[in-house]
Design a protein around this nucleic acid. Structure first.
Lengths: 200, 200
DNA sequence: CAAAATAATTAAACACTGTTTAATAAAATC
DNA sequence: GATTTTATTAAACAGTGTTTAATTATTTTG
């Protein structure tokens, strides 16, 4: 039943990733299994292992796609004032986590942490930090590189924390537009507090 | 081979939870299986299902223990100035996540979210928010209840975000005492920024 | 062009997982 | 002491990731 020329290696690779993404979107991280992906593309599990080192490898590649997609959305944000850039980034982050809950979940699954992060992905993440660092550098021209790098991560951690707890339903608070308000407040107050330091 | 009077139901329950906790601490979330817990206490899996509804139930009870332990540590923080209380809470949180990485990981495993959060646990979490809200209320006597509740969650989310990304090794930055600095800055700047709002 | 080498594909197996079931052994009740 | 209730277990079911050996298709070689 082998049929090598039905699809090239590249086509198969693409088919598998697409099928996996659909499975992920529709049924969540736990439904993402080698057998289901194989069945979805009409091949056996063994053939999947010809295309991917293992399931973790497939997940990393899925994560790379997710990051590319998010990065494209972030790049589409009009570059206005630095504060608006940072806020826009946070909004995009929260919105993305809501729109693609399972893709976003897979990004931070501890399981994937078992194997080491591929260099390619690490580069993508670093690029996104630089985006934030650039906006912060505009706001704080006198700040040291260390400080800017740390602050970019701190702001990202804060936004990420909001997204995590919201997705886990662990905020236990019914307020209208809760996440949006939390986002506005944490970024606004953080930046104001920092500016205040520089004036004293 | 049944031996009903070797251990009472309560003893068995305690033995199972303790064994599960050791397994969790030593081998991580993925190693926490019904068969391993059963083997550790010298009973069959079936007997475990007499004590717990399922593995998720066992995990919830493990999480309840973890929260109790953390709450005890938080309560041991000397009640000083409100800012020190909030900072102390954040420090305790980061420290706890480092000292008990797997217990802390289990707390936020999405898997456990499949079944609903037991009321008991929900109450424990609410209690911890109140702790933060109390300190914030001292700093901002004029603030509305809504605002205090939201801010407590925002600060928690920020600290949680730092802990998550640090535990996932996703900060990609080698700075001495990075997490501590991020913590100090996010709390300090947030509170300063808020105070600034009230003066304007 | 046919034969040999290579590579892809698959079915089956292995070692796990959570959970359920039927049979058995022990304790409690009558 | 006989009967009912309960605890316990081994076995089974349906999954999982991954590996293996055998088969089939394609390429390369003679």
């Amino acid at each position: 039943m082998a049929r090598r020329n039905d699809h090239s290696r590249e086509e198969l690779h693409e088919m598998a990733l697409s099928a996996a993404q659909i499975l992920l979107d529709e049924q969540g991280v736990t439904a993402l299994s080698t057998r289901k992906v194989a069945a979805a593309i009409g091949y056996s599990v063994g053939s999947l292992y010809q295309l991917f080192k293992n399931l973790d490898d497939l997940c990393w590649q899925l994560n790379a796609r997710t990051l590319e997609q998010f990065q494209a959305e972030v790049n589409a944000i009009p570059a206005e004032q630095p504060r608006e850039i940072i806020l826009g980034y946070g909004r995009a982050y929260l919105e993305f986590a809501h729109r693609w809950p399972h893709r976003w979940h897979l990004l931070f699954e501890h399981k994937s942490q078992a194997s080491e992060i591929p260099d390619e992905l690490q580069g993508k993440i670093a690029g996104m930090f630089e985006y934030l660092e650039g906006a912060l550098a505009q706001l704080f021209p006198g700040a040291e590189a260390d400080s800017l790098q740390r602050s970019a991560r701190t702001l990202w951690a804060a936004v990420h924390g909001i997204a995590v707890l919201a997705s886990l339903d662990k905020l236990f608070l019914n307020q209208p537009a809760l996440e949006q308000q939390m986002l506005n407040e944490v970024i606004g107050r953080y930046l104001n507090g920092w500016q205040q330091e520089n004036m004293a």
